[in-house]
Amino acid sequence: MRNLKIIFLGVVMGLATSVAFAYAAHVDIGEALKRNIIRCQAVKAGSGIDLTVSNLLHDSVYLEIGSGWIFPTADPSMQPQVVSRSHMICLSEGEERRARLLTLCGNAPGRVVPMGYANFLKPALGKSEMVAMLRELEPYKLDRKNIAQSIVWHYTNGHSMANFHPGNSNMEEYLTAMHVFQVNEPSVVDPGYRIRYRESTNQDAAVFSGASEEIEGHVSFKVNETTNCLVALLDQQGKVLKPLKYVNEQQPGEFELSFNSYVFDLPKGNYSVAVLDKNGMTLGELPVEI
């Protein structure tokens, strides 16, 4: 009987130890740093950061760095780096390894982090909605696309969907990203237009110029009797600033017209794209913020 008790206790302790080891061996970066399982050093590199990780355990470690982890910079004016693709780094006892993490900018107006910059703070997990979103996007490998960057800025800087311009994404990639976003964020309202911002000189998607160059979208309108329609960009007082489209003799019905307009010559502010009939009456209007 006593032997049985000893065997039972031995089995229980063995199981507990193996679970404890298994828990220690498979951790995410936050937990690993908190429990001093690893030591890491991040250095800014092309399209992301080079992370050098040292295993401090007397056992193997499976270190997981999921998308959505943010590496803040010691200088708050610089761009925090948001991991856009999950990584699993396997380290044997005492091993040191280096991995390239693909990252996106986590603060639109932040300064670009120079190559070789190493003064990163302890990583922190981003908003749960952003983490979930990036995980959903991961299989589509859109890390280097403007649309992925715009989506990150939605969470980090509160950018609206108007900033979700396709940029360097092809239409399939763009529609995929939009579909994933809308499934994850059904409550976010699509304003019906997109703003294209001026690209940085080195065409780096992580650099937000803040200078709007072009808007494009769709405006809906209703025609009760045949008329000529003018689609125009109006200022807040309703003055026509730019005629965009002129539709000759539009018959009655409900329609939607696409529009695009350069806006680099306009100051930031509230405008609208309106459809006017030949008497200047508004048939449809879309508020636009540039």
């Binding site: 005629p243 965009l244 002129y246 539709v247 000759n248 003799e249 307009s261 350069y262």
Partner: peptide
């Protein structure tokens, strides 16, 4: 010139 207006005829 920078932003041509599109004219559409049914």
């Amino acid at each position: 010139t920078k932003n041509p207006m599109q004219v559409m005829f049914n």
